[in-house]
Write a protein that binds this DNA or RNA. Structure first.
Lengths: 136, 136, 136, 136
DNA sequence: GTGGTCTAGACCACG
DNA sequence: GTGGTCTAGACCACC
């Protein structure tokens, strides 16, 4: 099983996507406090991405206090990371939904129609592999 | 009343925001087929934005067939624009909602929680003036 | 006059030194809120450093809310930056002094001796060009 | 009483911190010429650190002539070590203070303010156990 | 013109 | 082995 993969259809910077994957992994329990995240070089190879890009993602996560360096060993998930990742996840989801709702509202779309779209999406079957081919 | 204004907190390209405003205005009925959109310079001044940026937005809208030039007069909203804008709007809303739902699903968030967030956002009061003072 | 220069004798990462110089420039009034910092490429050339390194410094400063992007124009010093840079400066000075005092205390050095050293350093004449040759 | 302990908040290399502790112990009289320093393994265990790291610290201290090997016995504090440690200590303290003073000067900080900070730090109560629980 | 992203690869310090 | 820094240079989007 692959811990981290990228959404090919995501136009956001790669380093940001990687950071989000880590947050999600922590929020979902796949990574627990004290666990070491994959080494920069390994993850870079796995994602077919430059090590610098992974390093940047990890650096940002350190800046948010979600990862902590263990000198000479690697980076481990910080103590209080789970709660913060959970709330970060919630915020992220809220951000997307809010944007959709806002767009609809501003263009005076019928709320019932928005609701319908939401239901459809919630009921949509899981997209295998995120519905897109891996980059490599 | 102000036809077009910009969301200050929006990190998307300005020209794209402008184009969306126009689409929304058409979808919502504020602009009807045959109406002239504001002159580039006027709108640029109103939004405190580089005229090139407005021009680019209009150019893209022409490329989508939503605006049509009237020689010596300006740009008018095209005939079939309303339907196309409505569907474009729907697609846009769906795209945002889908992304939120997807993120939640991938990180194993409880669907009930997603639902709750959606409800909150739907019930959220309209942001007055987009929550920020005009730039000018 | 040169706005920013580097201490050659500083073993800290270059990007951090650059960020500190900017903070100092703001704290000292050389840069004021609303001013644009030098373009990445220009400053990189001036300091004989890779543009990425300058960019990283600027990026961190943005993260601290001290710089704000003006799209297509550059980076400007943020509104409340002066106070925060002043306090950042104070913290930095305190950090160095504390370390010296701590070292002395832990090794049971006579406080009078520490005091004497401090006086000498305070009275030391200004080192021209930071006492070191420019890197280039 | 514990001869050597590490400051948890110190970002300097551990081997350097260890070497400094030894120097301080010598400068302060806790270790006298002819005394044996703790065996590498013991100290490593005590500090919860890789033995290589302690070995490196000792190696550097040997290189500086502050420790001398006694075949089959261990490492002892060298003859002239006290004076050298004292002066090393002084240099170190001066270096930190100078840096603080320099930073302040370069950013045009009011000397009185620098003085005040120095006083505060001199008056600061001793940090018990270095302000952090032992790692082990 | 501006900043931002990404790649490629080298080098270093630490354990 | 680990992460961190830095360089060099390409490419992009935006204004």
């Amino acid at each position: 099983m692959i811990l981290l993969d990228l959404n090919a259809g995501d136009e956001r910077p790669i380093y940001e996507q990687i950071a989000d994957r880590v947050k999600f992994a922590v929020a979902g329990g796949a990574l627990r406090p004290g666990d070491l995240v994959p080494p920069v070089r390994d993850l870079a190879k796995q994602l077919v991405v430059n090590p610098n890009t992974v390093a940047r993602a990890y650096r940002n996560l350190q800046g948010e206090g979600l990862l902590e360096p263990v000198r000479g060993i690697g980076l481990e998930v910080a103590e209080g990371a789970v709660e913060r990742c959970r709330s970060a996840r919630g915020e992220m989801v809220r951000r997307w939904l809010r944007r959709g709702v806002e767009e609809a509202r501003q263009s005076k779309m019928d709320p019932a129609e928005v609701e319908a779209i939401f239901r459809e999406e919630m009921a949509r079957p899981v997209t295998e592999g995120n519905g897109e081919v891996r980059r490599g």
